[in-house]
């Protein structure tokens, strides 16, 4: 048996793949990576197969049984093999007895991706190893002491080295207003688009609450539970704003003032508590054009 023996692990470090889209009609969100671009960068180094999404809580493991190339991509994390910095994002050889530690670096980023050629053995649910955290379905949440078995361990010299990561656009996160923007007075929309927001620690794989001024709808709304999507900007009764993420609930009765374009989901997920956030409205047409310009893959 060969694989990674977990020595220490933070909260919400999970098995991950591209997710299971297309099942919201049964209450199942797509799940999958918080930062799709981070997982895509990992794929360029080690190919498909179940990978690990590492949270700000970090991960430390020992390699057991067989040598294998490992890769780490995604947000700003420092990766040390036997105490030496391997300069992530990169792929490197790991050998039985090696101890690898993945921890948040000083520069920003909240989610990193760890993979190996052939992936890790993980249970599938509905065709995907992606973890749905609130149910524990899918690959699951990592715990100290467990062995993550390699799927097909091998050293891939050609893959080893730095992983190229395309520059990300900076600037405001782009929102398509609606579907319930008509229930908000113009001042509320103005507040959403002009205020400086702050990312908070009230964040997990389901969504992130933002600190900022209240965004109040016209009167108390009673919307029958209706579908939600990742990126939906939901406003609760007190006017507090939450942006839904990969493991979002698939329905709710809170008004959704806007939806963030998918091209910005990964960059938003990589925010750390306290990071500044600004929004800008784009039309639905401009949102479609962003996809067609290849700013982001479907999903």
């Amino acid at each position: 048996m060969s694989g990674l023996r977990v020595r220490a692990v933070g909260a919400v470090v999970t098995i991950c793949d591209e997710g299971r889209p297309g099942r919201m009609r049964w209450g199942v969100p797509a799940s999958g990576p918080m930062d799709p671009g981070g997982l895509a960068a990992l794929r360029r180094a080690v190919g498909p197969g179940p990978a690990i999404e590492v949270s700000l809580g970090g991960l430390e493991f020992a390699v057991e049984g067989a040598p294998c190339t490992l890769a780490v991509a995604g947000g700003g994390f420092e990766v040390r093999r036997n105490g030496l910095d391997v300069s992530a994002p990169c792929a490197f050889g790991a050998f039985p007895g090696d101890v690898v530690r993945i921890a948040p670096a000083r520069r920003g980023g909240a989610w990193a991706y760890l993979g190996a050629p052939g992936g890790f053995d993980a249970p599938l649910w509905q065709g995907s190893a992606a973890t749905h955290v609130s149910s524990g379905l899918g690959g699951g949440v990592l715990e100290a002491g467990m062995l993550l078995r390699f799927g097909a361990p091998r050293i891939d010299y050609a893959a080893q080295g730095p992983i190229p990561v395309p520059e990300r656009p900076a600037g405001p996160f782009r929102l398509v207003l609606g579907p319930q923007d008509r229930h908000f007075p113009p001042e509320a929309i103005g507040t959403l688009l002009s205020a400086e927001w702050r990312a908070t620690a009230r964040g997990d794989r389901m969504g992130m609450g933002l600190d900022g001024p209240p965004v109040r709808p016209d009167g108390a709304l009673s919307i029958p539970s209706e579908p939600l999507v990742r990126g939906a900007v939901q406003v609760n009764g007190e006017g507090r704003v939450t942006v839904l993420a990969a493991d979002h609930q698939t329905a709710a009765g809170y008004p959704k003032i806007a939806v963030m374009v998918a091209a910005d989901h990964g960059r938003f997920a990589q925010l750390r508590p306290g990071d500044r956030v600004r929004f800008r409205a784009v039309t639905p047409k401009e949102g479609v054009a962003l996809v067609r310009e290849g700013d982001h893959p479907i999903g």
């Binding site: 009609r25 029958p224 209706e226 579908p227």
Partner: peptide, 22 residues
């Protein structure tokens, strides 16, 4: 059509923006 999601009074249609638009 990527998926359709029925609810009480609303139907969400998720589409491929490479193939069509709103």
């Amino acid at each position: 059509l990527l998926e359709a999601v029925p609810s009480y009074v609303a139907l969400l249609i998720v589409f491929d923006p490479l193939a069509t638009d709103h």
